[in-house]
Nucleic acid binder design. Sequence first.
DNA 1: CCCAACTGTCACAGCGCTGTCACAGGGACG
DNA 2: CGTCCCTGTGACAGCGCTGTGACAGTTGGG
Lengths: 225, 225
Amino acid sequence: MAFLLLIEDDEAVRTALEMSLTRQGHRVVTAATGEDGLKLLREQRPDLIVLDVNLPGIDGFEVCRRIRRTDQLPIILLTARSDDIDVVVGLESGADDYVVKPVQGRVLDARIRAVMRRGEREANDSATFGTIVIDRAAMTVTKNGEDLQLTPTELRLLLELSRRPGQALSRQQLLRLVWEHDYLGDSRLVDACVQRLRAKVEDVPSSPKLIRTVRGVGYRLDAPS
Amino acid sequence: MAFLLLIEDDEAVRTALEMSLTRQGHRVVTAATGEDGLKLLREQRPDLIVLDVNLPGIDGFEVCRRIRRTDQLPIILLTARSDDIDVVVGLESGADDYVVKPVQGRVLDARIRAVMRRGEREANDSATFGTIVIDRAAMTVTKNGEDLQLTPTELRLLLELSRRPGQALSRQQLLRLVWEHDYLGDSRLVDACVQRLRAKVEDVPSSPKLIRTVRGVGYRLDAPS
DNA sequence: CCCAACTGTCACAGCGCTGTCACAGGGACG
DNA sequence: CGTCCCTGTGACAGCGCTGTGACAGTTGGG
């Protein structure tokens, strides 16, 4: 279904994932180190990269950053179990998704498909989240067909969230993406804007279904199933 | 279905897209650099150009601008993912659409068809927006059947807006399209022209229904439903 | 159950954005 | 050469967006 590059130093994990992903219909090339991975990336041009965080030599985060300097292809990080710091650092270093080890091939496959779909949807000019429709060309947002009057900042915030549906974005990241600032003190800037956006976008702003809070991290835009 | 010129330096991407587009029924010629692309354009006269932004030598934007100086054929830009600046610059340089990489052949094909359809509609010489009728061949605009006396600049502004109905255009983009300037300081140039155009076009200029303001962005021409 | 950390909420002051307008330069045309 | 109208500019005002900081509410762990 897709052409993947798997970068993972542990041989057992590597071969297991390779077999499983191949069985799911993907074409897979593998590398055991970050250096080899970067070389293979340039030579083979995969559609997507699955990248272990714990690598000998340059680690996964660094590999991720280096890839992002030149390439925009989707990256999924494999990270050791439930390490919140890893998650934040990983997303900030430019990854599209992360998966916690130990991971089953089926689960990874589902994430791969999700990330690829996300990429396709991004290219499209309109996106739907529940009753909300975002028209990126017209720069309008409608709810049940009615125009929502969003302020410029609210709109930018929603656009950035909608470009990464289902992905938690830290206040730090949002600050960079929406406000183009680097540092947020302990002000409630992002929270206040999210509140205003929720007031217009959510059916019940006090129990938001679209813009979810991710405690300790930031916010996430969900499409209700 | 159409005769395409694909300009893309990365050989893997180029051949992949060429195969995919050929399979979709298009006739495709390819070039690896902007120079070759421009030469092929003159020699072969394709219906549409798919143009990568990252090209060695003269980049895609520049190629796009050069093509626009002499030709009006549709151009679709291939741009690196999630780069808003690219999108804006791309449309300003005269592209008709942009597609975000990595891109699937199917998606690109859909965009190609959409742009071609749009082109056909455009070839039609008149467009209607509410009580306003624009006759592109006669270069006249009528309101309820009566001729409107638009000045040259007002007319160009209205024509550019009407080529992209429902799409928000930034002041920056309009400046490029209508005035062929590059930089707008903080002057009220675009606003002033929009105001004058509204005075003639809108039923109630103080609450415009056709030329809508998109706060923080620019303006948009709507067709009242 | 309690505490600490985190998030939601709100009012307000400042200011950024847009609409508006008058005016002067300049080009077109006779 | 004179006239007229188009056009870009800058000033100004009004509106409403936005960031701030204090405080209340909520969550989760010990």
